[in-house]
Amino acid sequence: MGTIIQAGADFIYRPNERWELTGGMYTAKYTMPSRMHGAQFDIGLDASAAYRINDFMRIRFFGQYSGFGKQNSLNGYMSPMYPQSHYGAVLEMKVNDYLEIQGGVERVYNASKMKWETVPIFSPVIHLNRKKK
Rank of each mutant, 00 (worst) to 15 (best):
Q84A: 15
F62S: 12
V105Y: 06
Y87G: 11
Y30V: 09
T22L: 13
N54I: 08
Y87P: 01
E20T: 15
Q64N: 09
M81Y: 14
G38M: 02
Q102F: 00
I4Y: 10
T118P: 04
S79A: 12
M1A: 13
Q84G: 15
D42H: 09
D55S: 10
K113M: 12
I59W: 11
I126M: 07
F68M: 13
A50P: 07
P15D: 07
E117W: 01
K113P: 03
Y87A: 13
P80Y: 01
S112D: 12
Y82W: 13
F62W: 08
L45N: 12
D10I: 06
D42T: 10
R107Q: 03
D10S: 10
P120F: 06
A39W: 12
N72D: 11
N75S: 15
T22D: 05
R58D: 04
I121D: 05
M1K: 06
I101A: 07
N110W: 01
Y109D: 01
W116P: 03
M25A: 15
Y82D: 10
Y77M: 13
N129I: 02
G24Q: 09
S79R: 05
M114K: 15
E20I: 08
A47M: 13
R130E: 07
I53W: 05
V105Q: 02
L91T: 12
M25H: 03
G103S: 11
R60C: 07
I59H: 06
D55R: 12
I4T: 11
T118L: 06
V90Y: 05
S85L: 09
T27R: 13
Y98S: 09
G24F: 09
V95S: 02
G76Q: 03
Q6I: 03
R58S: 14
G24P: 09
G24E: 05
E117A: 04
H127K: 06
Q40G: 10
R58Y: 03
Y87D: 00
N72S: 07
K133S: 12
W116A: 13
Y51M: 07
D46E: 15
Q6A: 04
Y26Q: 00
K131P: 09
A39N: 14
L99G: 03
G2P: 04
Q84S: 15
A39T: 15
N75E: 15
A28G: 10
G24T: 08
K115D: 10
A89L: 14
K132L: 09
K94F: 00
Y30N: 03
E117I: 12
Q71F: 11
R14K: 15
N16M: 10
Q102T: 07
G76S: 05
A7F: 03
G2K: 04
G63W: 08
T22W: 04
D97P: 12
